[in-house]
Simulated assay, not measured.
Amino acid sequence: MKLSKYEQETIINFNVAESDAVVFTRDKAVIRKLDALVTEFPEVYKCIGETDIDKTYSMPKQYVSYRKPRRISVERREQIKKQMSQINCKRNS
């Protein structure tokens, strides 16, 4: 079944009283990432339900993170741009 981009949602649910978070997703990319984590770390990540269009996972809520956006100065951005240009020139030579 083909889902619209709007229908390809991911919902993360947890509360203060419990130690685990529940992740419900219909996004194929998120499913692939979480399936890989379930395979690599089965004692931590668990697939607790699935249908033909979605999956539900359980994981410790401490692995849900919030991050600040990375800030790069204009000078640093120019340095990175020059470095990448040099790397690409070496590859093309």
Rank of each mutant, 00 (worst) to 15 (best):
L3Q: 06
L3M: 10
S4E: 11
K5P: 02
K5G: 09
E9Q: 13
T10I: 03
T10S: 08
I11Y: 09
I12K: 04
I12W: 04
N15T: 11
N15K: 08
A17T: 10
S19I: 08
S19Q: 13
D20P: 00
A21L: 08
F24R: 01
A29V: 11
V30E: 08
R32A: 13
K33L: 14
L34T: 00
A36V: 05
L37I: 06
L37Y: 02
E40P: 01
E43R: 07
K46H: 13
K46Q: 15
C47Q: 12
I48E: 04
G49P: 06
T51W: 05
T56W: 01
Y57L: 03
S58G: 05
M59N: 00
P60D: 09
K61F: 00
Q62V: 07
Q62T: 08
Q62G: 05
V64R: 02
V64Y: 01
S65V: 15
Y66M: 12
P69C: 09
R70V: 11
R71E: 07
R71V: 06
R71S: 08
S73Y: 07
V74D: 15
E75L: 06
R76S: 07
R77L: 09
E78G: 06
I80V: 15
K81T: 07
Q83F: 09
M84E: 14
S85F: 11
S85P: 01
Q86I: 13
K90D: 08
R91L: 14
